[in-house]
């Protein structure tokens, strides 16, 4: 199966698809939240729509001595990074940008999130937001290195950094089967750069919403939508690099990718209900002392397998 690059005119469609899947994730989250609140499951399904209507009708806020340009860059950055991430993911036979270094590109875009979240926290000139921004960086230093090595594993196995090749290399066996550690670390890192679930401390309740604390109206919508979009982009990349991308029986490749992305996304959303937030300073030790050696070992195993097979 070869991957062809579509013309730039399809970019809005890709963006709309990303937002649609992200909205579905938000719906699921709303439904689950409604269930824990003792409401009928269906009553939460409209959450993203209602929240969008609410936030678009709300006034934006500016704070005293805010660094507005940087704040706006940060707020817009999350959604932008998510869009750039999915640009390299092959959607069945098509992709927006068929980069030879797709895996590294994804990694670079997730680093852009560092800047975006920190700027969103720095901009409003508010202690809680700033602490949220710093927490994100502290947390990012914990998850980023394991994530880089986790991304190395499928690249090594496929012998290429191009995502099309990574998908093609999984025609027999999905990578998740023989690199479970890399996959687990990758999923944790997705939660990390989406400020989600157990790694959601930068936007946590202990700082009254952290980087979100001063955001209202469209700003808050962009940040929240950005988080869901990043989660979605992460799930789409995970489905591509570990879950076999478009491979599967009967259904067309693009539908398989959509199904796998939705499944991984649903798991990530559901996990959030089950876990409390980890304090960022507690994360560093397990990330560097447990996750990093394990994922290095994983890369070693993958490399040995590749060498032996060759």
């Amino acid at each position: 199966m070869t991957v062809t690059e579509v013309s730039a005119g399809w970019v809005p469609l890709a963006a709309a698809l990303l937002l649609a899947v992200a909205a579905a994730a938000a719906s699921l989250e709303g439904a689950l939240a409604a269930r824990s609140a003792g409401q009928p499951l269906g009553s939460g399904l409209l959450t993203p729509v209602a929240e969008t209507a609410r936030l678009f009708g709300q006034r934006r806020r500016t704070t005293v001595a805010a660094d507005l340009p940087l704040q706006r860059i940060g707020i817009a950055g999350l959604l932008t990074a998510a869009l750039l991430m999915v640009a390299v993911v092959p959607f069945g036979r098509w992709t927006v940008a068929d980069l030879t270094v797709g895996v590294v590109w994804f990694n670079a875009m997730d680093v852009l999130v560092w800047a975006a979240v920190w700027l969103a926290g720095w901009g409003p000139n508010s202690a809680h937001a700033l602490v949220g921004g710093y927490r994100f960086l502290a947390q990012a230093l914990s998850y980023e290195l394991p994530l880089m090595f986790a991304l190395t594993a499928p690249a090594v196995a496929a012998g290429s950094l191009r995502l099309g090749d990574v998908v093609a290399a999984q025609s027999g066996l999905w990578f998740v089967v023989w690199m479970p550690v890399a996959f687990a670390v990758f999923c944790a890192a997705v939660a990390g750069f989406s400020v989600w679930g157990p790694l959601g401390a930068p936007a946590g309740a202990t700082t009254a919403g952290g980087v979100l604390v001063e955001a209202a109206g469209v700003d808050r919508w962009l940040l929240s939508a950005g988080r869901y979009a990043l989660l979605t982009a992460g799930a789409a990349f995970g489905a591509t690099a570990f879950l076999g991308g478009g491979h599967g029986p009967l259904l067309p490749a693009w539908l398989w990718l959509l199904v796998k992305t939705a499944a991984l996304l649903a798991v990530l959303v559901a996990l959030r209900r089950r876990l409390p937030v980890i304090r960022p300073e507690q994360l560093a030790a397990p990330a560097w002392l447990v996750a990093l050696p394990l994922v290095l070992l994983q890369v070693l195993v993958v490399s040995v397998v590749v060498v032996v097979q060759a």
Binding site: L99, T100, V104, A108, W114, L161
Partner: peptide, 21 residues
């Protein structure tokens, strides 16, 4: 220079985020 270009973006963004602190 796709690899080096992307690596530059990756490393320098990360470095500047830390440098900001």
């Amino acid at each position: 220079l796709e690899f080096l270009g992307v690596i530059t973006v990756l490393m320098m963004t990360m470095e500047m985020a830390v440098m900001g602190i």
